[in-house]
Amino acid sequence: MNIFRLAADMTHLISILVLLLKIHATRSCRGISLKTQDLYALVFLFRYLDLFTRYISLYNTVMKLVFLGTSFSIIYFMRFHRVVRNTYDKEQDTFRSIFIVVPCAVLALLINQERSVLEILWTFSIYLEAVAILPQLVLLQRTQNIDNLTGNYVFLLGTYRGLYILNWIYRYLTEPHYRQWIVWLSGVLQTGLYVDFFYYYFLAWRNNQKLSLP
């Protein structure tokens, strides 16, 4: 565990807490894509199947359970909470998840490290996480007056991915057997998807204006 990895995980955790805070404090999930949240739940579900087969560390197990629990509770609020569900922008959240789920599944079947069910599902989760933010970015573009917590939620998610790249560089330089092209390429693509968002986020911050994506 290096400082970049720890910072990345904590940023990821804080991003989820910011989203939960938004939902609890404002009783609203306006501007949040349920499609992206569904995809993240799928990502965690398939990636953390090794909870049952391999013990890595207490930290690892606890974080996996926290990510699974929080992602499903967010979905619960958005789908079923008496008040919150009415604030979901269903008409605006139109991205077709199938267009990213199917290609990721095909890619995981074709390009993987090992022909086993667990490995292919794990690889699928890596590919899917890379593009799972797309419905959220599309929804943000359509949202007038993006609120602070939503903007910060997406900003923290992008920061978490950027910090993972620093973690990989560090590990590549310090651990002799650390090679993972599938993870690296997916991670770089994922971080790249945020570049546009970051640009407008900093522009809004510098000019002291509300964030909006053109």
Partner: peptide, 10 residues
């Protein structure tokens, strides 16, 4: 072992 190391990530 090369493949296992990155599985300790989240």
């Amino acid at each position: 072992a090369g493949e296992e190391v990155s599985k300790d990530e989240l």
